[in-house]
Measured scan of single mutants.
Amino acid sequence: GPGLTDLFKTEKAAVKKMAKAIMADPSKADDVYQKWADKGYTLTQLSDFLKSKTRGKYDRVYNGYMTYR
């Protein structure tokens, strides 16, 4: 089956995709945050998933999740 690194890459891609969806349409934020909360994502995990070469690119999404939880 898929190894943990593959799983991480898949999760990371999914999280980034959802983060971009929030940035494009902030009204989606609560739905996405709820999904992440259901998956039990911690802020540390989210921070790892949303690492970007562009500093602060996903800060709004991260901060939103922090206040959501």
Rank of each mutant, 00 (worst) to 15 (best):
V32L: 05
I22L: 13
K20N: 14
L7P: 12
P2V: 11
T5Q: 10
I22N: 00
D48K: 15
M23A: 05
T10W: 11
K9C: 13
E11I: 05
Y65L: 01
D25C: 09
T54A: 06
G3C: 15
K9P: 06
S47K: 15
K20D: 14
D6P: 10
S47T: 09
K9T: 06
N63M: 12
A19H: 01
S52N: 05
A29E: 05
E11W: 04
A37K: 08
F8T: 06
Q34G: 10
K9W: 08
Y62R: 09
R55H: 15
T44Y: 10
G3I: 13
E11M: 06
D38F: 09
K28V: 14
L46G: 00
T5A: 12
A19C: 04
Y41T: 02
V32R: 00
G40R: 05
D59R: 09
D30N: 14
E11V: 06
L50A: 01
K39V: 07
V61S: 01
D25G: 03
Y33T: 01
K57R: 06
Y65C: 01
N63Q: 11
N63H: 12
A24L: 12
N63T: 10
D30L: 10
D38T: 10
D25Y: 04
V61C: 02
F8L: 10
S47H: 12
F49A: 05
G56S: 05
T5G: 13
P26E: 09
D30Y: 11
L50M: 03
K51T: 11
L7Q: 14
D31W: 09
W36L: 02
D30R: 11
K53Y: 07
M66W: 07
L50R: 01
K17I: 09
Y58Q: 00
N63P: 02
D6K: 07
K9F: 07
A37G: 04
Y41Q: 00
L50E: 01
Y33E: 00
M18F: 04
A24E: 09
S47W: 09
M66Q: 14
K53L: 06
G40V: 01
T10L: 13
D30I: 12
G56M: 04
G40A: 04
T5N: 12
K17R: 13
F8W: 15
K16G: 02
K12V: 08
T67H: 14
D25A: 03
D59H: 05
M23G: 02
S52M: 05
W36R: 00
I22G: 01
